[in-house]
């Protein structure tokens, strides 16, 4: 190969490497920020779950979102990314969705999607999209999450859905995450606590027997249920976000490593080509002078 073309190729590989390196570093900081935000909501989650558990499990009060319903329709919320270049992140969510459809062939599924990629997932699986959210800001504001939750509950109220499930990516650590589908409404206190990573230490749980309630217990529960739904959905959104970024970190790290490897190889080729050109030139000069003398 010509030294000039090799040189050009080296330059472009180098530039790509720089870009992927930068993307990797950006994603690392974004991932850290999402994890921090996720942890900041723990206090609220803990308190609201405590309240819910006392009123619902111990005092046997009820709320429409705590009761199971009949029907053959399921509302699925799919959380995936807006952008690509994040490894298998979206594909894994898609696989879970497909598996859910295969195992629940008797139900009709409607979807509320978050992210442009989940629109594609829904279309690929022939799911009817009832609402699509692609314009959320970087780390979700309170009003965005609230309107998102509102559209889920409204859809659930107005149609005879059996349940609402959420397809999201659970963030285990910065190296491990796992796409999964989890039930959301009707709210089950135990599964929801697990989603929020709240330890179920029964002896540490306080009973609210001594408390007085104003105006009454049912009113308090009516406020506690949406609060719990809101934290759960917010935490799932942030976990998916953290997983997306950490998936992107890995993909970009691979790309950067590959770029370095490719660059080494090209450098070797370049030196070889350069050496060959010099050798050829020398032999031409030697040949030329031998012909003259």
């Amino acid at each position: 190969m010509q030294t000039k073309t090799i040189k050009q190729k080296m330059k472009s590989v180098q530039n790509i490497g720089k870009i992927t390196k930068a993307m990797e570093m950006i994603s690392v900081s974004k991932m850290k920020k999402s994890v921090q935000k996720r942890l900041a909501s723990d206090v609220f989650a803990e308190r609201s779950f405590e309240l819910l558990e006392n009123l619902h499990v111990h005092k046997k009060l009820s709320h429409p979102y705590l009761e199971s319903r009949d029907g053959n329709k399921v509302l699925m919320v799919i959380i995936a990314s807006n952008k690509g270049l994040c490894g298998g992140y979206n594909m894994n969510v898609s696989k879970q969705v497909t598996r859910f459809i295969d195992t629940n062939s008797e139900v009709t599924i409607d979807a509320i999607v978050v992210g442009k990629q989940s629109e594609k997932i829904a279309k690929r699986n022939n799911i009817n999209i009832v609402a699509s959210f692609t314009e959320f800001s970087d780390y979700y504001t309170a009003s965005e999450v609230r309107s998102f939750l509102h559209s889920i509950t409204q859809q659930y109220d107005n149609d005879n859905y059996r349940e609402v499930v959420i397809a999201y990516t659970k963030f285990v650590s910065s190296l491990a995450f796992e796409a999964q589908i989890t039930p959301f409404i009707p709210l089950n206190v135990d599964t929801a606590e697990k989603l929020a990573h709240i330890e179920n230490t029964t002896n540490a749980k306080r009973k609210f027997a001594l408390y007085s309630f104003e105006p009454n217990e049912q009113e308090v529960l009516n406020k506690a249920v949406p609060a719990v739904l809101m934290t759960v959905i917010y935490q799932l959104l942030l976990e998916s976000l953290a997983s997306e970024h950490s998936s992107r970190v890995m993909a970009m790290r691979n790309a950067s490593d590959n770029a370095v490897e490719m660059l080494d190889e090209l450098k070797l080729n370049y030196n070889r080509a350069r050496q060959a050109a010099i050798t050829q030139e020398i032999s031409e000069i030697v040949g030329g002078s031998a012909a003259v003398s």
Partner: peptide, 8 residues
């Protein structure tokens, strides 16, 4: 403690 779903 005043806390919201987003932060304390």
């Amino acid at each position: 403690t005043i806390t919201t779903p987003l932060r304390t």
